[in-house]
Amino acid sequence: MLKHSLLTILCLALFVSCKNEAKQTVDLEENRAKSYNQDDGFVTLKGDFIYYGDAAVLQTASEIYGVVIDENLHLLEKEVKPFKKEATDMVPVTVRVRKFEKGKDEEGWQYRVEIKEILKVEAPDPESKDVIKLAN
């Protein structure tokens, strides 16, 4: 009887945890679909975000973008702050942005993004070995 009860509880726990994970994935997919289906010129980007000093960067798997410093950037910085151990830590985010080319007389990466909506902020992977430390 005890084994049967433990097995039932274990199965129930697995079912509930899988259901929550699937819901989070569906929500993100709905948000992505919303971004592409709105035909508003905004795109969804997922990457590592850092705001340090007077520069903000979003690094995706294939591109690096300079981020426009505005009110939405500061809102994103407030959301990522609890995940940072050091000021130079990058935090995974998913955001809707307006992507545009930088001016010819401006320095920086070829493309810039202006954050329009924050979809998700995640904790950095503690197992990641992608750490760069700057020192004098």
Rank of each mutant, 00 (worst) to 15 (best):
K3F: 06
H4L: 12
H4T: 12
L6P: 01
T8G: 08
L12M: 10
L12W: 10
A13G: 01
A13K: 08
F15Q: 09
V16H: 05
S17L: 05
C18S: 13
A22E: 12
K23D: 13
V26L: 13
V26E: 13
V26R: 13
L28C: 04
L28S: 03
E30N: 11
R32S: 05
A33R: 11
A33C: 12
K34M: 15
K34F: 15
Y36K: 15
Q38E: 14
Q38A: 15
G41C: 10
G41F: 12
G41K: 13
F42I: 15
F42A: 11
D48Y: 11
Y52M: 08
G53C: 01
L58E: 10
L58Y: 01
L58T: 09
Q59A: 10
Q59M: 09
T60L: 11
S62Y: 14
E63Y: 07
I64A: 06
V67T: 03
I69P: 06
D70I: 09
E71F: 05
E71T: 10
N72E: 12
N72H: 10
H74W: 11
L75G: 02
K78M: 14
K78W: 07
E79F: 09
V80K: 08
V80E: 07
P82W: 07
E86Q: 03
E86A: 01
D89V: 04
D89I: 05
M90E: 04
V97W: 05
V97H: 02
F100L: 02
E101P: 02
E101Y: 05
K102S: 03
G103F: 04
G103V: 01
K104T: 06
D105R: 09
E107Y: 08
E107V: 06
G108R: 05
G108E: 06
G108M: 05
G108Q: 06
W109Y: 13
Q110W: 06
Q110L: 10
Q110P: 05
Y111S: 04
V113S: 01
V113M: 02
E114D: 12
E117M: 02
L119F: 00
V121G: 00
V121F: 02
V121P: 00
P124R: 04
E127A: 10
K129V: 06
K129N: 04
K129M: 08
D130M: 07
V131C: 00
A135Y: 06
A135I: 11
